[in-house]
Nucleic acid binder design. Structure first.
Length: 489
RNA sequence: GGCGGCGUAGCCAAGUGGCUAAGGCGACGGUCUGCAAAAUCGUUAUCACCGGUUCGAAUCCGGUCGCCGCCUCCA
């Protein structure tokens, strides 16, 4: 099987071949920490996480960078409004980010470079561009000369001449051309600033990503990710400045995630038309949020809303229930293994039992989906097929499953693999061994007695009571089970 | 105006030339259950419209309509 990846620049899917054998360097555009993270951010980072996890699963040595752009106009604005140092603002939102990164089971990046900690690298890169006459100082700023960049526009499909007509003419007379973008921004009174050959100032937007990406991962990196809305101008400018400076290709595969829609319209901070992760996490478990985000292909525009999350929650419960069932079977089988496990032949790996066949088939389907540009949406569909198939076998003849130790082990291993790649569960596969308070257990026992006596009224009463406490009772052939209520209302 | 994307069932969503168009949610009808829950079975799509290419198209080409994004800070 071969991994295929869609590249935004070439606009097609291609077989993935890393720059260096066995290694993958990924730079994922993180947040400009000027506010709390919203769902759109989280979608992007979950997408990056899936890519990272899968490449590791396939066997690559992955180095994953996710930056924090921790100085910009809005951060400074907020700092001034609150009368604090801009670092206070930046660090506040960085801390926020980490909170939700953990909540959504996003594996930590290997490096979280910050713009303000790479001022020297940034100045060095700007200097290279100035030295080559591709950038110039205008007033206290330094600009990139867009018209001299022959390949400008190749990522976004824009032509320089067409750009100009639509471009807002900025009132910066220091620019030779309105299209030129800022590499270095001279400081005004009261703004954070660093010394540079062009006077005190700070980096413009775009340049920090180029500098940090190249510093840690080299001139040419394997993948650069971020939201679709970063293609222009951010990534276009990154390519322009990076390739102009080094003469080497900047990125091998551009990975852009689709944007989140809210009732058909893009989430947008400026219009207030968005959900903050902070609010959503109050209503839904991080696992459900993550599951929803990854059950659509990351490049698609995705509808987001509470209704969608409720649906995802119901589906997610099906997967969780299967894991719990498998966990119970394993422990039961383990418990009985000492006694009756001689020579019925069931413990032999034959690859022939229905469970083994099912596991093998679904595994292939799942991996094929993931190999196809990390299509986690399709992959999730295969998991559901597995869930239904196992449940069907169980409904037909539970003993078939219960006696198939090898098959159960195969399924369990498969679910662990899915979990490793998709990061479905924060604490590993759910086992069903959840803590239920003593008083609840007491009630359940009481109810079982009532049921034996066919005192249905009392039984229903207790069930309601237990439900009110947040637990669900399921009556089965071997008694009643209790578990925390998992569906989200 | 320029560039790009999308339009698949009640809703969400895979699928980009060829077996019965994944999967989830919901709804309706069965099974199981004391009733539920969980689970399961069945039903619920000629893929926006028109034309073309092809033995064959949701999938390719052309056109029409509709929606959205980018072009300004944005995951």
């Amino acid at each position: 099987m071969t991994l295929k990846v869609y590249d935004t620049l070439r606009r097609k899917k291609e077989e993935f071949k890393p720059v260096h054998e066995g290694k993958v360097g990924i730079y994922f555009c993180g947040m400009t920490v000027q506010g709390k993270p919203h769902m759109g951010h989280m979608l992007a980072f979950v997408a990056g996480d899936i890519i990272k996890r899968y490449l590791r699963f396939v066997g690559y040595d992955v180095t994953y960078l996710q930056n924090f752009t921790d100085v910009d106009d809005k951060i400074i604005e907020k700092a001034n409004a609150e009368g604090v140092d801009f670092h206070v603002i930046a660090e506040r939102y960085i801390a926020e980010y980490f909170k939700y990164e953990k909540e959504l089971n996003i594996l930590p990046a290997d490096i979280y470079p910050k713009a303000t900690e790479h001022i020297d690298d940034i100045i060095g890169l700007v200097q290279r561009l100035v030295d080559r006459d591709l950038a110039y100082q205008g007033g206290t700023d330094v600009y990139f000369r867009v018209r001299d960049c022959s390949f400008y526009g190749k990522l976004s499909g824009r032509k320089i001449d067409e750009l100009q007509s639509g471009a807002r003419i900025e009132v910066e007379e220091q620019k030779e051309d309105p299209l030129d973008f800022t590499l270095w921004k001279g400081a005004r009174e009261g703004e954070p600033a660093w010394d540079s050959p062009w006077g005190r100032g700070r980096p413009g937007w775009h340049i920090e990503c180029s500098a940090m990406s190249m510093k840690y991962l080299g001139d040419t990196i394997d993948m650069h990710g971020g939201g679709l809305d970063l293609i222009f101008p951010h990534h276009e400018n990154e390519i322009a400045q990076s390739e102009s400076a080094t003469g080497n290709p900047y990125v091998k595969y551009w990975m852009h995630n689709g944007l989140l829609n809210l009732q058909g319209e893009k989430m947008s901070k400026s219009t207030g038309h968005f959900f903050s992760i902070e609010d959503i996490v109050k209503e839904f478990p991080g696992e459900v949020i993550r599951f929803y985000l990854l059950s659509t292909h990351f490049r698609s525009t995705t509808e987001f809303g509470r209704e969608r999350l409720k649906e995802a929650s119901a589906g997610f419960d099906r997967i969780r229930n299967l894991c719990i069932y498998l966990g119970e079977l394993s422990s039961r089988q383990r418990a009985s293994s000492g006694v009756e496990r001689s020579g019925d032949g069931k413990d032999t790996v034959t690859g022939e039992s229905p469970l083994e066949k099912l596991a093998a088939q679904v595994k292939v389907d799942f991996l094929e989906a993931m190999d196809d540009d990390f299509n986690s949406g399709e992959a999730v569909g295969h998991i559901f097929r597995l869930v239904r198939e196992v449940n069907r076998l169980k409904a037909d003849d539970p003993s078939l499953i219960e006696n198939d130790r090898v098959g159960v082990a195969a399924l369990t291993g498969l679910m662990e693999m899915f979990d490793g790649i998709l990061g479905l569960f924060r604490d590993g596969l759910p086992t069903g061994d959840v803590e239920v308070p003593e008083d609840i257990i007491k009630l359940v026992r009481e109810r079982e007695d009532a049921r034996k006596n066919k005192d249905w009224a009392r039984a229903d009463e207790i069930r309601a009571e237990v439900a009110a406490a947040g637990y669900t009772i399921e009556d089965g052939p071997d008694g009643s089970k209790v578990k925390p209520s998992d569906s989200v209302e």
